[in-house]
Design a protein around this nucleic acid. Structure first.
Length: 448
DNA sequence: GTAAGGAGTGTGATCGTTATCCTAC
DNA sequence: AGTAGGATAACGATCACACTCCTTA
């Protein structure tokens, strides 16, 4: 609790005077919390402000985990995941230099040991279950420079939390596609809960991605997205879409998409066998530990597990080294429990390229498909609306197009008003009356 | 053409929620 | 060692304000 308070930033008025702690910690705390409006100077005046507390871990900004992932990918695949698209700091994020971010990338690798359990890059392709929407979406991160709000991929908690816009991209489009493949019709067919999407899709979009995002946040966990939650990937939506209002509305929906299946190397059969052995129940098990049924929709993070991670961090590093040593012996590698397989992202780039040599561009054609999708009217014209699927396809097309062209950034309707507001005098952010010269003169006269 | 009322504008303060830390058990 | 629960920092959403423009009667 040292830096933010001493530096006097923000609303960190709560100070821990551990010196006074001998009397009662609770009393000190309550004294600080009694008046939220108290200024920093009140609490920070004491030169005896010595804190023995461990400094609080900076809370993850929306962009932070996204940047972490981007940094990791850029480190692993510098030729593919360029670092130039790493996000700028958003309005709500503290300025964060990209270079700094990249410098931290090495450190950031450590937390990504959770890949061990996630199977995000490794096991998913093995299972031959490519129709997993967020794979490609995740890859899309690196190219979305405009996505300032961010995303969070919690592999450990089996929840995927992407950037706001991306969230929607993921759970809307991918779900649509997946449902379409699976014959589930959430647009044309099933009933849906009334929501804001209704106006976008004539027949309503399934409650999967509708409604207030706030309510979403609470209810998203455990929701079965067309059966995809069996993979243990719930979706945690950030509240609302406000963050995206600061996004420059580009055509960023059309950014190239990398299918994670494609960028994932083909593993040796030994690893695959291990993964398969762990997935007795088919694709749903995979190597991902089955998510515990989460009774509460409003979830608290498993802080204890997080602590575990941090505590085991150093030993884990040792484990990684051991794994590296064991890599020379594939037989032993096979015997390594999955939880200690280490960072499987350490890939031979040349090997990956050779694997791709017959696959073409790592950027799937889907991105081109999006570009083609721009001409929605042309495609709509080609659709036979009287056919069985024509109506639905048209609806999906219209929905996608409308969503693609949706504007989240604040739109100024009247520039004049903006100019006036800018010129208007303020007091603590509020508009105040302009001093009336006449009344001022009158007041002066009265005083005289 | 005129009057009345609503909409819209930016920014700081405030409030409610969430994430993290810490302590007791 | 692990867990529950309180405390608190961090964050996002909302509000208030005065004034001008636009719409409608």
């Amino acid at each position: 609790m040292s830096s933010p308070c001493i530096s006097g930033g923000g609303r960190t008025y709560g100070f821990d005077l551990e010196i006074v702690k001998s009397s009662s910690t609770s009393s000190t705390r309550t004294s600080h919390t009694s008046s939220p409006s108290s200024t920093i100077s009140e609490s920070s005046n004491s030169p005896l402000a010595i804190s023995t507390r461990k400094s609080r871990t900076p809370r993850k900004r929306p962009n932070q985990t996204y940047n972490e992932a981007a940094a990791l990918l850029s480190t692993a695949y510098p030729n593919i995941f360029s670092t130039k698209h790493l996000t700028k700091s958003s309005k709500f994020t503290k300025p964060q230099d990209n270079s700094l971010l990249l410098d931290q990338s090495s450190d950031l690798l450590l937390p990504f040991r959770v890949f061990d359990n996630s199977g995000f890059l490794i096991h998913q392709p093995i299972q031959g279950k490519p129709s997993y929407g967020n794979e490609s979406r995740f890859a899309n991160f690196t190219d979305k420079s405009s996505c300032q709000s961010s995303g969070e991929v919690d592999f450990h908690g089996n929840s995927v939390e992407l950037c706001d816009g991306l969230d929607e991209d993921f759970d809307a489009e991918s779900i649509l596609d997946e449902e379409f493949e699976e014959g589930i019709d959430s647009i044309m067919g099933h009933s849906s809960i009334g929501n804001e999407m209704v106006d976008e899709v004539p027949n309503g979009i399934s409650s999967s991605f509708g409604g207030q995002m706030n309510s979403w946040y609470g209810s998203s966990m455990g929701y079965n997205f067309g059966g995809k939650s069996q993979y243990g990937h719930g979706i945690a939506m950030r509240r609302g879409v406000r963050a995206l209002r600061h996004v420059d509305e580009g055509n960023w929906w059309d950014f190239p998409i990398v299918d994670m299946l494609q960028i994932s190397p083909r593993l040796t059969t030994t690893v695959a066998a291990t993964a398969n052995a762990n997935s007795n129940n088919g694709p749903e098990c995979n190597s991902i530990p089955k998510p515990k049924p989460k009774p509460k929709l409003k979830l608290k993070p498993n802080s204890s597990s997080e602590k575990k991670k941090k505590k085991v961090e150093k030993p884990a590093v040792m484990e990684e080294k051991n794994v590296e040593l064991k890599d020379e012996n594939p037989v032993k590698e096979n015997s390594i429990p999955q939880s200690s397989q280490g960072l499987i992202l350490k890939l031979n780039y040349d090997h990956v390229l050779s694997e791709w040599s017959d696959r073409g561009s790592p950027f799937s054609d889907e991105s081109m498909g999006c570009a083609e999708g721009n001409d929605v009217s042309a495609r709509l014209a080609q659709i036979d609306l009287f056919s069985e699927n024509g109506m639905r396809e048209a609806s999906v097309l219209r929905y996608k197009e409308k969503r693609r062209t949706r504007l989240f950034s604040k739109k100024i309707r009247y520039q004049v008003r903006k100019v006036n507001a800018d010129q208007r005098p303020r007091m603590k952010g509020r508009f105040v009356r302009r001093p009336n010269p006449r009344s001022d003169e009158q007041e002066k006269k009265k005083k005289l």
